[in-house]
Design a protein around this nucleic acid. Structure first.
Lengths: 274, 274
DNA sequence: AGAAGGACCAGTGGTCCGTA
DNA sequence: AGAAGGACCAGTGGTCCGTA
């Protein structure tokens, strides 16, 4: 059987065929060939992180269709029953994100925000593949990035994609899609101030609430109107913030009869613990 | 507290305010006022079926908002601790459906197909109510008849609506929506032949597969294009049948190069055990 | 036998919290 | 401390099968 792609380096990226290609692995399953995240088009050898794994996912009798078969992931490498190099070693976590400007490459053991947004594009490509397969088989066709898509991404070797991470930053990606200028400005401002990723992430909510205000507070409609964003579930907290702000706007409008509603979004942004 | 509507008679129907009104109940919780299913506009007193219940759902402290509170259904009638009339009696099942012509009232302990289709309209109204509440609260808004909608229907007193039943006949309702003439003709033919509901139900698949053929075999698109049908999930078996027929059509087309594909739907309708 | 529906089950959306 | 993600959980879609 052919060797299955275990996963791809987190630095892999913008080059041609950005997803679903199989990386070459050595006998121990280590990723020895990778495409590195590059901002300006020049490949730099950066952090080919030693990856440790709990389990080997190299299996025999691998089919070219990995949507419906059972779990092979518990198989141990057929070659060596208990090699210390293979067993008992965990897969390393992805490097944490840092706030980077558009086009900026993260230095050290970090990942930048262009890379974060690229993960969303990769998920979209995995969804398209799942949709193609589903249509071909006459099965239910997902319209969103579902558990099935995350599972497919993992089986395709993109082990660096996972649901909690993608859900965590959806609204940041939403701002990037809906108002790239505003998103870029926010990134530059927060980088300049030396803010961490968490506070940048929090700051992404407010401009989105303003956008929702300009669309009658219908954040679902805002998401659905954008082709790359419509495949993502609206995050609960963003939905709640829009609802709170709408209520504030309604209250303000009824207190000040005849006043236009402004969409300036200055009132209750901090009430919800964003 | 006000008494909660326990459920409505299955014969209740086409009159004004067809759903979500509270029926009056006597001390034992029996439905004593009902609206009866009427075909021609004249109310006939028909089968005010004695209903037996396992549990009383009459509760005190009932709110006017029954979407998120806990289950009150296990409460026993506060009045009498163990009245034999109330305890230990099951709710009677709905009368089975029989094949009726359009406009025909079912006789005896039976329900007709107009009534069946009316249940789908009621579900749509319950969905609309759930959507209104969700939007008002800024929560996720269902686009389909989900478990939440069935739960809401039950809490609103429509205990005769349940998921297995509605899912079972969805494709029959689909034919009624998409080609009422064909649906009516099928009903008349199967009634004339004295067929039971099960065989009528089976026969509803084929004309739907033909409709899908005329729309590029995209049964999801067919459902979604119809406003009353789009809120229902495409049944698995209908989806599978369309897929099989499409494959047959493709095979026939490649065997007979240059031949137009006909959508006559005569080939494999019996292969799948419909 | 034909049919209604309670109740179960595998896989979902959502995110917490033990981990590094 | 800030952050990544395995793993859990309540409620879902789907329908079987014990019931009448």
């Amino acid at each position: 059987g052919t060797h299955h792609a275990l996963d791809a380096l987190s630095q892999e990226g913008l080059s041609d065929e950005p997803v679903h290609h199989l990386d070459q692995t050595d006998a121990a399953g280590n990723n020895v060939v990778g495409r590195y995240w590059e901002a300006g088009g020049q490949a730099k050898m950066k952090k080919p992180q030693q990856r440790r794994r709990k389990k080997q996912t190299v299996t025999s009798a691998e089919t070219d269709d990995d949507m419906n078969e059972g779990e092979d992931d518990d198989d141990v490498n057929g070659g060596g029953g208990g090699g210390g190099v293979v067993l008992g070693i965990e897969r390393q976590r992805e490097h944490p994100f840092i706030v980077t400007e558009p086009g900026e490459v993260a230095r050290g053991k970090k990942n930048g925000l262009d890379y974060l947004f690229h993960l969303y594009e990769q998920c979209r490509e995995f969804l398209v593949q799942v949709q193609t397969i589903a249509k071909d088989r006459g099965e239910k066709c997902p319209t969103k990035v579902t558990n099935q898509v995350f599972r497919y991404a993992k089986k395709s070797g993109a082990s660096y994609i996972n649901k909690p991470k993608m859900r965590h930053y959806v609204h940041c990606y939403a701002l990037h899609c809906l108002d790239e200028e505003a998103s870029n400005a926010l990134r530059r401002a927060f980088k300049e101030r030396g803010e961490n990723v968490g506070s940048w992430r929090q700051a992404c909510y407010k401009p989105l609430v303003n956008i929702a205000c300009h669309h009658g507070w219908d954040i679902d409609a805002v998401f659905n109107a954008h082709p790359r964003l419509s495949i993502w579930y609206v995050p609960t907290k963003l939905r709640q913030l829009c609802h709170l702000e709408r209520n504030n706007a309604v209250a303000a409008a009824s207190a000040l009869v005849g006043n236009g509603i402004s969409c300036t979004g200055s009132s209750a942004s901090g009430h919800f613990g964003v």
